[in-house]
């Protein structure tokens, strides 16, 4: 349960960071100028909020480590990193 919750918190933070990532959105804007569909409804996150989300992404791992839940920690880390990569790939592959 703790594990699922940890992965969910990190995955949500990663999703928010990815959707409103300044560099990614800037690239999409440039693409949009050349005819691709723009990323509607998303504006780049300010630096401060990005830091908060980054912290939220890492906090579950710190808590799992403090609780000595090493197996969950490794699963959390692996699942979150895989999710981050796949999400970035999926977002990039949208026409």
């Amino acid at each position: 349960m703790m594990l699922l919750l940890s992965i969910a918190v990190s995955a949500l933070s990663v999703t928010a960071l990815a959707l409103r990532d300044p560099k990614r959105l800037r690239w999409r804007q440039k693409l949009a100028r050349h005819g691709a569909s723009p990323a509607k409804g998303f504006s780049p996150l300010p630096q401060r909020q990005r830091r908060w989300l980054l912290t939220a992404m890492l906090v579950p791992g710190v808590l799992l480590a403090l609780a000595g839940m090493w197996a969950s920690l490794m699963l959390w880390l692996g699942a979150s990193l895989t999710y981050g990569w796949l999400l970035s790939e999926v977002l990039a592959s949208r026409p």
């Binding site: 960071l17 990815a18 990532d21 560099k23 990614r24 690239w27 980054l54 981050g84 990569w85 970035s88 790939e89 977002l91 990039a92 592959s93």
Partner: peptide, 23 residues
Amino acid sequence: VKDAFLRRRRGGDVLSHKDAHVM
């Protein structure tokens, strides 16, 4: 960290390959 979500796809150019690898 800044480039973690940066994946620019433009055919098969160097930039696409670089982002694919780095990301």
